[in-house]
Amino acid sequence: MTDYLETARRVILTEAQGLAVLAEGLNGDFGRAVDLILQARGRVIVSGMGKSGHVGRKIAATLASTGTPAQFVHPAEASHGDLGMVTRADVALVLSNSGETPELADLIAHTRRFGIPLVGVASRPDSTLLRQADVALVLPAAPEACGNGIVPTTSTTMTLALGDALAVALMEHRQFTPEHFRTFHPGGKLGARLAKVGDLMHRDMPLVSEDTPMTDALLVISQKGYGVTGVIDALGHLTGIITDGDLRRHMDGLLDRRASEVMTPGPRVIAPEALAESALAQMQDRKITCLFAVADGMPQGILHIHDCLRAGIA
C-alpha cells in the first residue's frame, strides 16, 4: 500500500511540476492564439490523434460550454470527408505532442490551402505542425510521469491545462456570466445551482389585502398550502406577510382582527432574477420556509424551500 501511495504522489508531483513550467513559459503567442480565436466568425475546430484526441474532445467541450463555439473533428475522419466541416470562417486548434502525427497531415494541408487560421500545440518547435501553424504554442520539456517516458501523462496534462487556459481567457474577455453558463448547462447539479428564483417560483400566490378580515385570511393560508399569506396594499404592493408565528402572537381576538393588524410589515423578499441558491441560503439563514419574489414592490411569485430541495439545490 505504501508503494502505491508513493507512486501516486510521484505521478501527481511530476505532472504538477510540468504545469508550473508550462505557466512560467507562456508568452505573447498565447495572447495571439486568443486573439485569433476571437477574430474567427465560425467555430474552433479542435483535432488530435490518440491521447491528444481525447484531450481535444474535452477542450472542445469546455470551449463550447463557455461561450466559444467549438467542435472536435477526428483527423482520420477528416481525411475521409469530414474536412468539409472545416470552413474559412473557422480557426483550427490542432494538438500533437510530437507535432509529427501523420494523420494530421491532411487537416494541416486543408487549413493552409484555404487560409484557415491554425493554432498548433506540440512539444517540438521545429515540428511540421508548429512550423505550419499561424500561432505555435510550445509545450515545455517535462518528464512523463510514468518514469520511462513512453506513456503520455505530463504532456497530456499540460495540453489539457493549456486548453483550459484558452477557454477561461476567452470566457473572461467575453464577460461570460453565470447566466450565460446556465444556458449551456440546464441539467444536473450545475443547472440546479444556476436556476433562478423565477424558474422555480409559484405564480398562484397566497395574497390578501390589508383590510381583509382574518377569518378570510386564514382560509387563504389553508387553501394555498404554503403556511403563509402575503399582504398587499390598494396598489398591489407587498406590504407584509402573515406566518404561523404571527398567528400565535395575535391569538387573543385573532378572528376579530384584520390582516394589517396581524402581519409582519416589510417582509424579506427576493428578486425573480436572483439565483435560487441565494434564496435557499436566505431561508436557511432566517429559518423561514418561504420567500416572495418581488419586482418594483409588486409580488411576482412565491418560492418554498421545498421547491429548492426538489430542484436539487442543497
Rank of each mutant, 00 (worst) to 15 (best):
Q284D: 10
A274N: 09
Q223W: 03
T243P: 05
L194M: 06
T243G: 09
G240C: 03
A276W: 00
I242R: 13
H237D: 00
G297V: 00
H304L: 03
G297W: 00
A281S: 12
R258S: 12
H180F: 02
A217Q: 10
P265K: 07
P213Y: 03
T289E: 05
T183P: 01
L303T: 10
M298L: 09
D199C: 06
E172S: 12
P206R: 14
I232N: 00
L247C: 07
A276L: 01
L303W: 01
T264S: 15
R258D: 10
M214Q: 11
L291G: 13
P267R: 15
M251V: 15
H250K: 14
R268N: 13
M205N: 09
L275Q: 12
V228W: 02
M201T: 12
K189A: 14
L190P: 06
Q223I: 05
G227N: 04
T215S: 12
R268T: 14
R174L: 03
M298I: 11
D252E: 15
G187C: 04
M205R: 14
P186F: 10
V197Q: 11
V220N: 08
I241T: 11
D233N: 14
G191W: 01
E277W: 12
L194W: 08
V294C: 04
V228H: 04
A217F: 06
P178W: 12
Q300V: 03
I241E: 09
F176G: 04
G188S: 02
L218E: 01
D204L: 05
C290F: 03
A195N: 10
P206L: 07
G236S: 04
K224T: 06
K287F: 00
I270E: 08
